[in-house]
Structures are given as C-alpha cells and as structure tokens.
Amino acid sequence: MGFAFPFGSLAGSVSSYDFATPTKEIQWLGSVFTGIIFCAIVYRLTAIFSSMLFTGYGKLSSAQKIEWNNRGFSTIHALFASFTSFYLLILSDIFNKDSQEELIVNRSSTFSNSVLGISIGYFLTDLAMILWHFPALGGLEYVLHHGLSMFSIIQSLLSGQAQIYILMVLFSESTTPFVNLRWHLDIAGLKGSKLYIWNGIALFFGWLIARIILFMFFFIHMWTHFDEVREIYPLGFYSLLVVPPVLAMMNVFWFWKIAKGLVKTISKAKHSK
C-alpha cells in the first residue's frame, strides 16, 4: 500500500507496508533539515577558520572562496557518511545475517533513517549550489550524480527497504576528502608538494577500494540475495537495477582520470629531481 508524505509524488509510488508513521515522517523531515542546516553552518565556519588560519584564503577570488567553503561541508559530510555507514554495515548487527528474521533488504533503524535524511539534506544543499553557480562547482556529471543519489536515498528512506545497498554507496563518499584536499592544495599553489603526491596515491587506492572493489561486492551481494531483492517494491527494484550500474560506470570513468593524473604527477616529480 502507498502512503501520503510531504516529499511529493514520489511517495505515492513507494510501497511502505505501513512503514511510515507520523512520528517517523517528522523524524525524516527533521533529519533532512538538520543536513541542510549542518551544511550552512559548516560553510560559514569554513570561511571563518580559513581566513584565520590560511593567509592565502584572502587572496582567492570570490568564486574560489565559494568553492573552497563548499568543499568544506562536502568533506565533513563525507566523513560523517562513511563512518556511520561503516558502523551500520559492519559494527552494528542490523544487517547481520542471523541477527533477525526480517529480510535483509527490509531492515532499518532510527539511526539509519537519520543518516539517510541528513545525507538527503546535504545532497539538496550541494545540488542547489551547483545549479546556482553552474558550471563553476561542477558540470552535468555532478548534477546527474547528485540527482541519482537523492532519488535512491529518498526511496529507501520512505520505504525502509534496500538501506543496506544505499549505505554501501554512501560509504564510497570516503574518497571525497582526498578529492577535496587535492583541489585545496592545487588552489594553494602546492601542486608540486610531497603532500599532493601522497594524497594522489591515497586517492587512487581509496577510490579503487571504495568505488571499484566495493561496487563489485555490491553487485555480487545483490546477485546472491536476489530472491530478497525481488521483494522490494517495483520502483525501488528497478531503480536498484539501473542506478548503481550508472554510478559504477561514472566511478570507472573518474578512476581512469585519477590514474592518468597520478601517473602525470609522479612523472613530473621524477623529472624535477
């Protein structure tokens, strides 16, 4: 059965098997607004602390300062999402095979719902900034990535289904701090530093693990639990078959660019010695 929910027409397509209650709806909306407020606060704090701690910050252009601050809350969300996803997937017993009789695709908790809600708030804020300053903060590939991410997370939050797979994808945000640090070092004129090289190496292996190997495990897990995956409501089921492969192809494309950049950086470093 469907349910009414303030997220709009999407909710009418989501089968909830009485998952939603007024209390949960308030919690979900509260989590989304928490994510938005969190981004606004971190954006402002990034500007304040950067102006105090980095002399070069004041010399940046207005556009560069906006992106610098934007990457500040992007980094904090990435740390939040990766640590909470790791806890829910590995350390907690929510998705432990023998912890409960509920199908693994139907498992969720108040904490996992809050994590998804906060991430929706982040993606909404970041997407709004990307569109407002388009294409300065990212091109169409970022719009596609954020759009698909929000579409999937909202469905999972409203239905309480497939959260194990959403959290796997959220864990891949663990590579974002390395991406942002590379940008910060570049804009600060430290592209030739050892930190830039080591960060590039960390980004390469981090991306390989979190966005290539993890996605391979993702698809293997889906295949081995396909009898449970088929129990997901229709829109969620077909989204699970379409969205992750699209994200995986984007990850492979970006990994190829990261690998090329790393080889180029290391080659320059060797020639400069």
Results as ranks from 00 to 15, higher is better:
Phe226Met: 11
Met222Ile: 15
Thr175Asp: 06
Lys260Val: 03
Ser85Phe: 06
Ala259Ile: 02
Ala136His: 12
Glu102Phe: 02
Asn70Arg: 02
Glu141Leu: 13
Ser61Lys: 09
Ile266Ser: 08
Ile212Leu: 15
Gln27Pro: 05
Val143Ile: 15
Thr55Tyr: 10
Ile153Ser: 03
Leu262Tyr: 03
Gly2Asn: 11
Gly189Ser: 11
Ala210Met: 10
Leu127Asn: 07
Ser239Met: 11
Glu228Val: 01
Ile213Thr: 03
Ser109Pro: 09
Lys260Asn: 13
Thr23Met: 12
Leu190Gly: 02
Leu203Pro: 01
Val252Tyr: 14
Met150Ile: 15
Glu231Ala: 11
Phe54Glu: 14
Leu88Ala: 14
Tyr233Thr: 01
Thr110Val: 13
Glu67Phe: 08
Ser99Asp: 06
Ile212Trp: 10
Gly117Ile: 02
Asp227Lys: 08
Val179Gln: 05
Leu103Val: 00
Gly30Pro: 09
Thr34Cys: 05
Phe217Arg: 07
Asn199Cys: 10
Asn70Cys: 09
Asp93Gln: 13
Pro244Gly: 14
Tyr87Leu: 11
Ala188Cys: 08
Asn180Pro: 07
Glu173Gln: 06
Phe7Glu: 04
Gly236Ile: 00
Val143Asp: 01
Pro177Gly: 05
Ile213Cys: 01
Leu53His: 13
Asp98Phe: 00
Gly189Asp: 14
His184Ile: 06
Phe19His: 13
Gly206Ala: 07
His145Leu: 04
Phe215Tyr: 15
Tyr196Thr: 05
Ser193Gly: 06
Val14Ser: 01
Ile153Cys: 07
His146Ser: 12
Ala63Ser: 10
Ala188Leu: 14
Phe204Glu: 05
Ala202Met: 14
Glu141Gly: 11
Ser82Phe: 10
Ile232His: 00
Ile120Phe: 07
Asp186Ser: 15
Pro22Asn: 10
Ile213Pro: 02
Phe73Met: 06
His77Leu: 10
Ser51Val: 04
Phe54Ile: 10
Ile130Thr: 08
Ile76Glu: 03
Arg44Asp: 02
Ile154Ala: 09
Lys268Gln: 08
Ser174Gln: 10
Ile130Met: 03
Gly30Ile: 03
Leu247Trp: 14
